[in-house]
Amino acid sequence: MRYILFFIAINIFVSCSTSKNLYYWGNYENTFYQKVNKPGDETSEKHIEEIKSIIEKANKNNVKYKVGPGVYAELGYYMLAKGNREEADNYFAKELSLFPESKTTIKFISK
C-alpha cells in the first residue's frame, strides 16, 4: 500500500516535469543587474568575475549544462573595452564555435 502511494506521488511529479536546463547561468542576472544599476568598477569587476566563474563551472560539467548564448561574447566585449584585444578575440572565437549563428553580431561587436 505504501509503495503504491509512493508510486502515485512519483508519477504525478514526473508526468508534468519539463526537460532539464540547457545552460548554466550561475548568478548572472544578479551581478548583471548590479552592474547596470550601480555602474562602476566594483560592480563591473564582480560581473566579469561571475561570467568567468560561470564559464569555468559550465565547462567542468559540460555534459549537463553548457555556456549560454552571448556569455563568451559579453566577456569578449568587456575585455575589448579594457584593451585586451587578444583575450577578447579568444572569447569571440569561443562564442562563434559554440553558436555559429552569432557570426554577424560578433563581427559587429569585435570591431
Binding site: L22, Y28, E29, F32, G68, P69, G70, E74, F99
Partner: peptide, 26 residues
C-alpha cells in the same frame, strides 16, 4: 529601474527556450 531589471534577466530565460539571444549588453 523596471527596464533594467527586465533586460538583465531576459537572456537566460529566452535562451533556455532554444533561441540565440544576441548579447544584451553590447
Amino acid at each position: 529601474n523596471a527596464k533594467d531589471l527586465l533586460r538583465t534577466t531576459i537572456a537566460p530565460v529566452l535562451s533556455e527556450k532554444g533561441y540565440y539571444v544576441l548579447p544584451i549588453e553590447p
